[in-house]
Structure formats: structure tokens, C-alpha cells
């Protein structure tokens, strides 16, 4: 009895293995085509994941990832006790909340107004102008910010003094920077972001507008009762997706606008800039990886939550 059972299990296993190899052979060309991408992803994405053990080690150059000694939660302790943990996490989240709310609002408004503009030349020209910032690097944006906010030659101080005000040394006054950073974030993303909402508006059935017109809706009713409700699904999906990235700071932007200007850090330091400083300036690999892991875990959780919310809202849009 036991013997036959064993044989059956063996046979089943054998069958499965055989089937697997059969498929392996059948898919050999597919697998060959996938091979470069698989190897790349293993090396550049999956292998670094094992490096998170560094967060629990005292990194030495000689020891590398595997040879360095363990030091438990020392790196995390250092990070949390330095007082920076709370500041950078708060800044990252608050900035992202601001970007999401103001960004969504501006992009939707631009999309709605653009579709209402009947002069196609004006529409195309303004849309192109808004798209322009998307194409340049943050390095160039950093130069532009200096043009506007430098205390001696900046355009902003020119305006302020023109109206009889006192010059402001923006690069030493952190309280202005949330607004400056918000401005450039919106500035760079408005053309790019509004395209998605424009596409959603273009997808609305024109018969809905005709029906609204027949019912005597004025243009404002048309916008608030037809256009906005009809693009709400897109707005909500994109909103939830950006909520998934709420613990991710845009290093490119913060570093080029603020740089290593310590005077501003209290208002401008985000998780990503702190990690990079720990890595590059102070060579504190242990703390940098502790912060990195802290962020990766938070990001992972928020993405899962956001995705769950998206799936509750509309199953078709779930990412996995």
C-alpha cells in the first residue's frame, strides 16, 4: 500500500519534472529572448536587495557587504536618535502631499480650460510652452532658480525692491523654500501631467455634452456637472498611484534646488537627500543603508495599500 503510494507520488513528480523540461525546451527561444533582461534584472535589481543586510552591519571597506561585522540595530538607533529621522520623514511626506494636491488641481484645471479654448493656435502654443520644462534636466532648473532667487542679482529681489521692499536673502531663509520647491515641482510637471487628463476629457462621449446643452446647462454647469465627474475615475486612479510614492523624495529636484546648503535643511531635507549625504559626504554606509531600508519598507507598504485602494475603486486599474 505504502509502496504503491510512493510510486504514484514519484510518478507524479516525475511527470511534473518531465513536463517542466518539455516546456523549457518548447520555450527555449522565448527564454533566449528574455535572457538579457532577466540577467540584467537579477544583477541590477535582485542582487542589490540582498545588500539590505548592510543596514544591520558595521560596514568596512575591507569587509564589504558580506565580511563586515554585524552590529544589530545600531545604524537604526543612530538614525532615529540623531533627530533627523523625524525631520526628513515629515518633510518628505508633507512635500509629497503638497505636490499631489496642488499638482492635481493645476493639471486638471489646465486640461479643462485647454479643451474649452476654441482658438486652436492659442491652445497648441500654450500647451507646448507648458510642456517645455518637462524636457530639461533639474540641473538647468537649478540655474533658473538661482536666476530668480539669488539675493544680489535675483529677479525676485528686483521686483521686491521695485515695490519698495527690502531684499530677501532666500538662500539663508528656509521658510520660503517649501513654496519655491512647490513652484518648481508644479512648473516642471504641469504640461506632462495635464496630458493624461486631456486624454480623459477627449474620451468623453460628445452626446453627453449635447444632452447637457439641450437640458439648458450653461458652460460652468457643463464643466462641473459633466467634464469633472466624467474624468473623476482618472483623477482618483492617478491620485492613489501618487499616494503610493509618498515616502519617495525626488533627489534630482531637492539636490539641484537646495544642494548642500545646510541652512535650509530643516525645511528642505528629505529622506533621499539625507541618504545621499550619509553615503557621499560622510561615507557612513551603515546609516545610509539603514535609512534606505526604512524608506524601502515604507514605500513597499504604501504602494501595496494604494494598489489595494485602486482595486477597491476599479479592478481594471490594479497594477498586479
Amino acid at each position: 500500500m505504502r509502496n504503491t503510494l510512493g510510486r504514484v507520488v514519484f510518478k507524479m513528480k516525475n511527470g511534473k519534472v518531465k513536463k517542466f523540461f518539455k516546456k523549457l525546451y518548447r520555450y527555449r527561444i522565448f527564454l533566449l529572448m528574455l535572457a538579457p533582461a532577466i540577467i540584467y534584472t537579477l544583477i541590477f535589481s535582485y542582487y542589490p536587495m540582498t545588500g539590505i543586510v548592510l543596514a544591520f552591519k558595521k560596514y568596512t571597506y575591507k569587509g564589504g557587504i558580506w565580511g563586515s561585522a554585524w552590529n544589530g540595530f545600531e545604524n537604526f538607533k543612530f538614525f532615529f536618535q540623531s533627530g533627523q529621522a523625524w525631520t526628513v520623514t515629515r518633510n518628505t511626506v508633507l512635500y509629497n502631499i503638497m505636490f499631489i494636491i496642488v499638482g492635481t488641481f493645476t493639471q486638471v484645471a489646465v486640461a479643462v480650460f485647454l479643451t474649452e479654448i476654441s482658438n486652436s493656435r492659442f491652445r497648441k502654443l500654450t500647451q507646448s510652452m507648458m510642456f517645455l520644462p518637462y524636457f530639461i534636466s533639474w540641473v538647468i532648473v537649478g540655474v533658473m532658480a538661482f536666476n530668480i532667487f539669488s539675493s544680489d542679482y535675483g529677479f525676485m529681489n528686483r521686483i521686491i525692491t521695485f515695490f519698495g521692499g527690502e531684499k530677501i536673502t532666500f538662500y539663508t531663509k528656509p521658510q520660503y523654500w517649501p513654496f519655491i520647491i512647490l513652484f518648481f515641482n508644479i512648473w516642471k510637471g504641469v504640461g506632462y501631467g495635464s496630458v493624461m487628463y486631456l486624454a480623459a476629457i477627449m474620451g468623453i462621449d460628445t452626446s453627453v455634452y449635447e444632452a447637457a446643452a439641450i437640458d439648458g446647462a450653461n458652460v460652468f454647469q457643463r464643466i462641473f456637472r459633466v467634464t469633472i465627474p466624467m474624468i473623476m475615475p482618472t483623477v482618483i486612479i492617478l491620485f492613489l498611484m501618487s499616494v503610493g510614492g509618498i515616502f519617495r523624495g525626488n533627489f534630482d529636484m531637492f539636490y539641484n534646488l537646495v544642494g548642500n546648503n545646510g541652512l535650509l535643511f530643516n525645511y528642505t531635507d528629505v529622506i533621499d537627500t539625507l541618504t545621499m549625504r550619509a553615503l557621499i559626504s560622510s561615507n557612513n554606509f551603515g546609516m545610509a543603508s539603514a535609512i534606505g531600508l526604512f524608506q524601502s519598507v515604507l514605500c513597499f507598504i504604501t504602494v501595496l495599500i494604494a494598489n489595494k485602494l485602486v482595486s477597491l475603486y476599479d479592478k481594471d486599474y490594479t497594477l498586479f
Binding site: 533621499d272 554606509f285 543603508s289 524601502s296
Partner: peptide, 10 residues
């Protein structure tokens, strides 16, 4: 992702 440090070391 493993974060920026393991990638840097890689």
C-alpha cells in the same frame, strides 16, 4: 528595491 547604497556598492 535594495536602495541606493547596495546599488552603489554593486
Amino acid at each position: 528595491s535594495g536602495g541606493v547604497v547596495p546599488y552603489f556598492i554593486l
